[in-house]
Amino acid sequence: MTLSRRTFLQTSAAAGMSASAALRAAAPGRVLTAADMHPAGYPTVAAVRWMSDELERQTGGALSIRTYHAGQLGRESDTVTLARHGALDITRVNMGTLNNPFPITRILCLPYEFDSVAHMRRAVDGAPGREILDAFAARDLVGLAFYDAGLRSFYNVRRPIHTPADMHGLKLRVPPSDIFMAMVRAFGANPTPLGFGEAFSAMQTHMIDGAENNIRGFDSSRQFEVARYWSNTQHAFSPEALLMSRRSFEGLPASQRELLLATAQASVAVMRRLWDEAEATSRERMAAGGVAFNDVDLPAFHAAAEPVRTRALADPDLLRLHRRIRALA
């Protein structure tokens, strides 16, 4: 039976215990609850499903994960709050949503911070990524792993974008992040922070003109049905974090905690393989479906983004991480 967001929250509040504890009472093993905005089959959802299968196999059914996908438990910001308070065990969250409550994550969303997919992966797999994952402990979360989220570009319902001047006057959806809002303003457009799931209807009703995201999210959300212009600005990577409630994590036996951490890290390779396959397929499907793809004047976008980068890197913590990331280029 599908558990609605309202039922989930009401049950947690009334009973005074986490949803994972409620499920545990009805199951022979510990069933961790996880949330994801993306639909079934999306690489992040599939990677957590793989984690569940591995945990169940290695513990003989004593530990598994049940994922509520497609935003069943609310926005990403909602699921972070639920996890912080122990009402949800695990959540997958895009870095843009985490920028304001966890300022150190802003470095991963800075425009043009990474040179390539390989560079981004070296950074999040290495010491910079470890430091950022450890920072989530300050607000009762355990950073389990980073997942890819592809290169982000702009798409809209009105026209191709070739230079920042083409963005003037466009109203574009962005994640609830000061970095993304500053970047869109620097490009000459008007940023509108909305939940990912709200972008389709907002474009359909002309509340906004477009948005920015990766090609896989553009495909899975079916936003291509209303936004027919995709411009390859490739302005950010903004990877995603797999986070766990510290209360839930510390409630596991030591052996299960170690296994969970190791399995989460192993799931990254699974997710990336699925992501690379899905990204190529999405691009082909969008092109075949009539989406107009165009390249842009990248030096012009780099130049327009530079003031945003300069202001952000005035923060000594971000500057230190930036230098370590650039050393991995």
Score class of each variant (00 low, 15 high):
residue 270 V to A: 07
residue 265 Q to T: 01
residue 249 F to Y: 08
residue 261 L to M: 07
residue 279 E to K: 14
residue 253 P to K: 14
residue 274 L to Y: 06
residue 252 L to Q: 01
residue 250 E to H: 01
residue 273 R to E: 15
residue 270 V to Y: 15
residue 258 E to P: 05
residue 280 A to G: 05
residue 262 A to V: 06
residue 285 R to T: 15
residue 269 A to E: 12
residue 260 L to G: 11
residue 246 R to C: 05
residue 272 R to I: 09
residue 261 L to F: 01
residue 275 W to G: 04
residue 247 R to L: 12
residue 270 V to P: 08
residue 281 T to S: 02
residue 271 M to F: 10
residue 284 E to V: 10
residue 278 A to Y: 14
residue 262 A to Y: 02
residue 252 L to P: 03
residue 255 S to P: 00
residue 282 S to M: 09
residue 263 T to H: 09
residue 256 Q to S: 06
residue 254 A to P: 03
residue 279 E to Q: 12
residue 275 W to E: 05
residue 261 L to W: 01
residue 247 R to M: 07
residue 246 R to G: 04
residue 246 R to H: 05
residue 248 S to L: 01
residue 277 E to H: 09
residue 270 V to S: 10
residue 252 L to N: 07
residue 243 L to F: 04
residue 245 S to L: 02
residue 286 M to D: 08
residue 280 A to L: 13
residue 246 R to A: 11
residue 261 L to H: 00
residue 269 A to C: 02
residue 258 E to D: 15
residue 243 L to Q: 02
residue 252 L to E: 05
residue 259 L to H: 07
residue 268 V to G: 02
residue 264 A to W: 01
residue 263 T to M: 12
residue 277 E to I: 11
residue 282 S to F: 09
residue 242 L to K: 06
residue 282 S to Q: 07
residue 262 A to S: 08
residue 282 S to E: 07
residue 258 E to I: 00
residue 259 L to Q: 10
residue 261 L to V: 01
residue 245 S to V: 03
residue 242 L to R: 07
residue 244 M to Q: 06
residue 244 M to L: 02
residue 254 A to H: 07
residue 254 A to F: 06
residue 281 T to P: 02
residue 242 L to I: 15
residue 272 R to L: 10
residue 248 S to M: 08
residue 267 S to V: 09
